[in-house]
Every structure is written in C-alpha cells, then in structure tokens.
Simulated scan of single mutants.
Amino acid sequence: MSRYRGPRLRICRRLGDLPGLTRQTSKKNKLPGEHGETNSKPSEYALRLEEKQKLKFNYGVNERQLLRYIKKSKRLQGSTGQVLLQLLEMRLDNTIFRLTMAPTIPSARQLVNHGHVYVNKQIISIPSYQCKPGDIIEIKNQANSRKLVEQYLKFPGLANIPNHLELDTQNLTGKIHSPIKREWVALQLNELLVVEYYSRK
C-alpha cells in the first residue's frame, strides 16, 4: 500500500494529536464517520491497531517499512518498543522536522526528496536515511533552499528542540549529539502495544 495522501484532519480526529502529520486542529470533537458518537468499549486488538496506526501515520511509513523496523528493533539490544521509536525518530525526515527546519514530516520529506539537504557534506535524497550521533545536517547553500527553510523556522511545528539535537539558525545547520531519549518523543502512544500487535502476526 502506498503512502497516505488523504485528508489529514480526519486521521487526527480518529487517532488524536499527530504532530508529525499536520499542525492543523479540528473544531469537531466527535470521531469521524457515521458511528463517531458510539461509546462501545474497544477490543484489545482495536487498541493495539490504533497505536500501530499512530506510528504509521505520524512518521509517514507504510506497512512494509514499519514491519521492517519492528524486525530490526528486535535484533538490537534494549527494549524493543524504545528501540523502535529511536529508529523512527532518527530518520532524516523526522530529524529535520525535530530541528524545526520543516513544519511537518511530509514537508521535511519533500525537502529531502528535492535535494535541499546535505548530511556530512554529502547530498542525501532518501528520507528514511538513518542518522547517527555526530552527523551534521546542512541546508543547500542556494537562495531558494535557504529562503524556504528560513520561512519554516519562523513558524516551527514543535515548541522545543530535543536535547540530543543542536540547531544553528545562522548557518542553517543541525548536529546530532546522541540517540533520542524516550521522554523527548513528541508522539503520545504506548509502544508496547505496537510490539504486541506484530508479535501476533
């Protein structure tokens, strides 16, 4: 299945606040759809599915990519859920979003795809590129690239930059000091339910 390109507010109404997907907020309180006002208790499967969908839509990954991240996080040392979040947070598109160089992850992905971003002096056009501690992210030294990012910096998507990142607004560069810690993940979810969802596959 390809990446979701439909209405974003509908997804946020169903799953809650997804800072990486959109900055808009809906004025409607009830869930979308014909049965939005039903108060039936969700099943355990529905709860796990909802947490998985939050990850999928917030970080803009498809089902196959998310399954690949799950398998990789199981092979690495540490809690599978926290390693999974670290892998997703250290993607290049998400790192640019967390540096406030883009208002959302889809706009950060567009910056990368269009060749506006350098990592360690090399142009990277792959949004899923896995950043590492010590990497230096730069914006291409061209007028249109710098103007675009400067506009984004005036209206950041998130209020705070995580403490594992450092932003130089003058030179439009960012540096990664360490892997992100769990408390700095902006998305509100229970990652253990996502691991449980895929353990039953």
Rank of each mutant, 00 (worst) to 15 (best):
L85R: 08
N62V: 08
M90C: 14
L88T: 11
L55S: 01
L111T: 02
Y69Q: 06
G78D: 00
G81A: 15
L85D: 04
T80I: 14
L85Q: 08
A102I: 14
G60M: 12
R109D: 02
Q86R: 15
L99E: 05
R98E: 07
E89Q: 10
Q82R: 15
Q86D: 11
R75E: 15
Q77L: 15
L84R: 04
R64M: 13
S73V: 03
P106Q: 10
R64Y: 13
R98C: 04
S107W: 03
T100F: 07
K56S: 12
E63W: 08
F97H: 14
V61P: 08
T95H: 08
E63N: 12
Q53R: 13
M101E: 09
R91N: 04
R68L: 03
N58C: 11
L84N: 08
I70R: 12
T104D: 05
S107H: 13
Y69A: 08
G78H: 00
I70P: 10
S79K: 09
V83D: 01
L76H: 01
F97I: 05
T100K: 15
L111A: 07
V83I: 13
F97V: 09
L87M: 09
R75K: 15
L55M: 03
K52W: 02
K71N: 14
N62C: 01
Q53H: 09
K71I: 07
K56L: 15
I96N: 05
Q86F: 07
L76P: 06
M101K: 11
D93R: 03
L92E: 02
I70S: 12
K71M: 05
K72A: 13
L87N: 10
Q86Y: 09
R68E: 12
R98A: 10
N58F: 10
D93N: 04
G81M: 12
P106G: 12
I105R: 08
P103H: 06
L84V: 11
L92S: 06
Q65L: 00
Q53G: 03
L66P: 04
Q82C: 09
G81S: 15
L66G: 00
A102N: 13
M101D: 09
V61Q: 10
V83S: 07
Q110N: 01
S79I: 02
P106L: 10
K52S: 03
Y69N: 06
Y69M: 03
L76A: 14
S79T: 04
S73C: 08
S107P: 06
P106W: 02
S107Y: 12
L66S: 00
Y69R: 04
F97S: 07
S107T: 14
R68D: 13
R64Q: 15
L87Y: 00
S73H: 06
